[in-house]
Amino acid sequence: MRLFQYHRPTTVDEAVGLLTDLGDEAVVLAGGTSLMNMVKLGLAEPEQVIALRGVRELHGVDTQPSDGLTFGAMTTLREIETSALVRGTAPGLAEAAHHVATVRIRNQATVGGSLVHADPNQDLPPMLMVHDALARVTGPDGSREVPVADMFLGYFETVVGAEEILRSVRVPVPRAGMRTGYLKFLPRTRDDYSTISVAAGVTLVDGRFEDARIAIAGGGSVPVRCRAAEAALVGNGTRPDVLAGAADVVPGEIDPISDGRGTSGYKRDMARVCTERLLRRLVAEARA
């Protein structure tokens, strides 16, 4: 593998300064599970690597009554999976994190890395989208907040600029009574990327959907919120034909590619099947 120069900033400002000074030759190292593989395989040949591990302000899960949960970009997926705070406030995020690869990878991979790497098959982004999470990005001109749902531009491409760092992800206080779940369809092995995965959050009041959120990963170049399927639920009851009707809309809202994990048509079909299964599960849990 090609070796690179290693930089260890200790503050976000220092990291942004390095990105600005080093220009196109620099990339950011968060957990390293993706970057190291890309360098080994020759898919990335960075000259300069800015390692964020030593930036203390990027670590940890924080909570404020009005802000919900805030994950520092360097929070590992294992921390999200096991955090009592996350499990209590937004259990769907812990569930989605648990489905990433193996415990070894989850100990190393970070929430910031998984967002900026922007592999469309990642598990956490669709659940963050269900939560209307916001990514905080810092560059030479200051900070801005971008909805996670709007940050992906295409395969491995996000709105985070070359001189910017994803600093944290904020999960607003979840809607009262919202029940979330994640279904990852894995026809090969448990540690694989999904063929298709569905994240959903539903709020039932008096047996009707007051609110519904559905996001799909693996259904194209970016994870997507399926607004038409959500609209098919809101205001309606929980009869099986309502759930099936919403799931029927999902294949039309995604654009999966054919690859080793299934053909485009198979993935569309499984997106429908998985959405229906997940909605049934959430409705059953809400009734229990």
Binding site: G32, T33, A51, Q108
Partner: peptide, 13 residues
């Protein structure tokens, strides 16, 4: 104390 893959961690870390 945390289980990791030695192949994926740069020694600088």
């Amino acid at each position: 104390g945390q289980l990791m893959s030695a192949c994926l961690v740069p020694v600088g870390e």
